[in-house]
Structure formats: C-alpha cells, structure tokens
C-alpha cells in the first residue's frame, strides 16, 4: 500500500477540492512558493487567481475572506504561525462566526482557516508555538484537529465543503506522520465524529491531535498491565459526546491528554461533560500544558511544558490505583 504523509494529505485535499469546486480559492502569506509546503504545486495547477499571496495584513485578509464567502466563494486561509490566530480572533469570532445569527439566517460564511504546524515546533519559542484550539471551541467555531494523514485529508475536505467557518489545526507534531493509505479509499471524514484508534477495557484516554500517537505508544507500553482505549475526538467543536460517552461507559475511567493550557482548556470541558453523564470508577485526570504557559525557547524547557508520555503513563496508573 502506498505511504502518505500528513502534509501531503493536506495538499491533496486542497488540490482535490479546488479541482472539484471552482469557488474554492486559497489565500495567505507565501503560499505561492509554499513556505509551509502545504500549498506546493497548487499555483502551477490552478493559477494565481486561485492562489493569492497576501501582504502581511492578517486582519484584512481574514475579513476579506469573510466578504468573499458572503459573496458565494469558499476561501481557504492559511496561517503559517498558530499565534497569528490571536491577531485575527476578532475577525473570525466577531464577524465570520456571528454573521449567520446576527443577520437572522440571511447568510453563511463558509471559510476554512488552515493552520499547518500548530503547537510547538521545537525552537520557535514564545510567539510561534501556541495551540489555541480550545479558544475556538469555547466561542463555538467548528474546530478540527486531525491526527493521521487519512483524517487530515478527510477533515480538510469536509471543512472546505462545510457551510460555516472552520478552523483546522494541523499540529506540528503530526505533520511528518506517514501512514499506509489506500488512495482510492480517501474520503471526507464527518465533522463531529470521533474515532477509537485502539479498543481497551480499563480506561479511556482521550488524546487531541498529535498526542494520539503518544497515547497509542503509551497504550502499547502498558499492554499487559492496563487495557487502554484511545479515543481521538478529531473534532473538538462540535464534540462527539455520544461517541465518548459510549467509550467511558464501558471503561469507567477517563484520562485526557491535551496540548492546551490547563485552565479552560478542552480537557476540562471533556472531563466536566463526561462526569455529568457517567458515574466513573475513579477520579478523572488530565495531562496538559501548565496554567498560563508561555513556551520557553531552550528545547528542554519547551519539552518540559508540553504534555508528555511519562506524564500520561503516570496519570493512567494513578487512575487505575484510585479505583
């Protein structure tokens, strides 16, 4: 079976949707030369009218995309740096997201915000290493964090076809993941549907984005002692609460591993919702970045602030010990 990298899966999704639908176009910084490598080859294939390099005016080109969407196009906006989302939070939340309700249903704003290389890319330090997906889930913008090449392809296709604004985080820690993929079987992945990567009986580990791969590795290491089920939500908003409830109702235990800062991160929401629905055998646990974390530069410090396999292993063991 051929191998497909996560990065190439994103490129393939963009190319397929641009070929399928004339109204899809791309805009962002340095996308013609494909500085992030995700838009490689698309200028040649689709021409400069559909692959727009923008000046460094993130606020204007984000709202430009809102206007183009109001007029019937389907823009895909690439952000090379996850922290730029703080700069355009106003344009996405106050305008693109609010327009359908504020106009009483007169319009739709089908924009995809694509963030390749979100989270830490070791060495990029404080202003290039954020992972702000919980913020978008909080305000109610459709938020996707695929972990695998097939899901990266399928969720990006679904995002572009979706009628509301969608932010797709492609974590730096997943961009180089490769998998055997049957190209003929690549298909849209439904928004709002999680996936059990590995069935287990003792504890459900919810892992977000690249951390799915860490959770699978930990589950392998613990096999024989603990039977770990790995649940990948894939969409953080709207979350697949029924899928997760079904899993935790079987295992009775819950650990969440999430690359958000701890306070008000998605892990807190996942735990709160599960305990509203399921009587657990042991207190749930979460492994996250610390409260208010700013990623320090030095590689050892950067790693110290991110959720890791050792912390996840310890959390699973504590949960098993507690009941």
């Amino acid at each position: 079976m051929p191998r497909l990298s996560y990065r190439k899966a994103l490129t393939r999704a963009l190319a397929d949707e641009m070929a399928r639908d004339e109204s899809v176009f791309l805009l962002g910084e340095d996308i013609r030369v494909a500085a992030s490598n995700v838009t490689a080859g698309l200028l040649k294939k689709f021409g400069p009218e559909r692959v727009l390099d923008t000046p460094l005016s993130e606020q204007a080109f984000t709202s430009f995309a809102t206007g183009a969407a109001l007029a019937g196009l389907r823009p895909v906006v690439e952000f090379q740096i996850p922290s730029l989302l703080f700069l355009v939070f106003e344009q996405i939340v106050n305008h693109a997201h609010k327009f359908p309700l504020m106009t009483g249903g007169q319009c739709a704003v089908p924009v995809t915000y694509l963030v390749p290389g979100s989270g830490s890319r070791t060495g990029w330090a404080g202003q290039h290493s954020d992972h702000p997906y919980s913020l978008f889930a909080h305000v109610g913008v459709t938020t996707l964090v695929p972990a695998t090449p097939a899901d990266a392809y399928g969720l990006l296709v679904s995002a572009i076809r979706h009628v509301d604004p969608v932010v797709l985080f492609a974590p730096a820690g997943a961009m180089d993941v490769r998998a055997d993929v049957d190209f003929a079987a690549l298909a849209p992945v439904p928004i709002g549907k999680g996936r059990v990567h590995r069935p287990g009986a003792d504890v459900t580990v919810v892992a977000v984005g690249h951390l799915v791969h860490d959770a699978l590795a930990v589950a392998d290491e613990l096999a024989g002692q603990v039977s770990v089920e790995v649940f990948d939500p894939r969409t953080l908003y709207p979350f697949d609460w029924d899928g997760l409830t079904e899993s935790v109702a079987r295992t009775g235990r819950l650990v969440v591993v999430d690359d958000s800062n701890r306070s008000c991160g998605i892990a807190g929401e996942i735990i709160a919702t599960v305990v509203e629905r399921v009587r657990l055998l042991a207190p749930p646990r979460r492994v996250t970045r610390p409260d208010g974390a700013v990623l320090p530069f030095a590689p050892a410090l950067d790693r110290a602030v991110q959720p890791g396999r050792e912390q996840l292993t310890a959390a699973i063991q504590l949960t098993m010990k507690d009941g």
């Binding site: 709202s63 109001l70 327009f99």
Partner: peptide, 20 residues
C-alpha cells in the same frame, strides 16, 4: 452586508465581497 458595530471592521469584508 450589514451595519457593523466594530469600528473600522467592515472595509475589508466589503473589499472581499466586491472582489468575489
């Protein structure tokens, strides 16, 4: 395309809509 209550915000939206 709407009255817009955020001062200065609508210009880029209209620019994108007219361009499209």
């Amino acid at each position: 395309l709407g009255a817009n209550a955020i001062v200065g915000a609508a210009g880029a939206i209209l620019t994108g809509a007219v361009w499209a």
